[in-house]
């Protein structure tokens, strides 16, 4: 990531997610923070991984309210590996999930997770930190 380039974020949800409030809210927050947001919406993990390649994004953000985040998160990261973007793209997830699943998601390789009450500044800082860690690593 070069210093002057805007951070590009793909926002998506797993295919059957019914709630979109989180994704809309975060899209607004990230745009206000000067990031470019690609709003993919509901899609299969394979479609999300492919879109991340095509859109050449730095970050993939998943909004999840309905559960199943560990199963689907694992699938998404495996597909990202196949697409060759697992290392360079930061994967983050926000929404409603049991607290211990945040630990599970980090173990899977998510760079950050956010609860539903996360503030704009927390999400923006979390993304920047994750990207800094990527470029350092």
């Amino acid at each position: 990531m070069t210093g002057s380039k805007k951070i590009r974020v793909l926002l998506a949800q797993f295919p059957l997610e019914t709630h979109t409030k989180g994704m809309i809210t975060v899209a607004g927050m990230l745009r206000d923070a000067g990031m470019e947001v690609v709003l993919l919406g509901n899609a299969l993990p394979a479609v999300i991984a492919r879109a991340a390649v095509q859109e050449d994004v730095d970050v993939v953000g998943i909004s999840s309210y309905c559960g199943g985040e560990l199963v689907l998160g694992e699938k998404l990261l495996a597909l990202a590996r196949e697409e060759g973007i697992r290392q360079e793209v930061a994967f983050i997830l926000g929404g409603i999930f049991p607290p211990d699943n945040a630990v599970g998601l980090m173990k899977l390789g998510f760079a950050a997770t956010f609860p539903p009450s996360a503030k704009a500044e927390e999400i923006v800082a979390g993304i920047k930190k994750a990207l800094a860690a990527k470029s350092a690593g």
């Binding site: 797993f14 295919p15 059957l16 309905c66 559960g67 199943g68 199963v71 699938k75």
Partner: peptide, 9 residues
């Protein structure tokens, strides 16, 4: 599409 979502909510 139902992967990981059966029996949630």
């Amino acid at each position: 599409e139902a992967l990981g979502q059966v029996g949630t909510v």
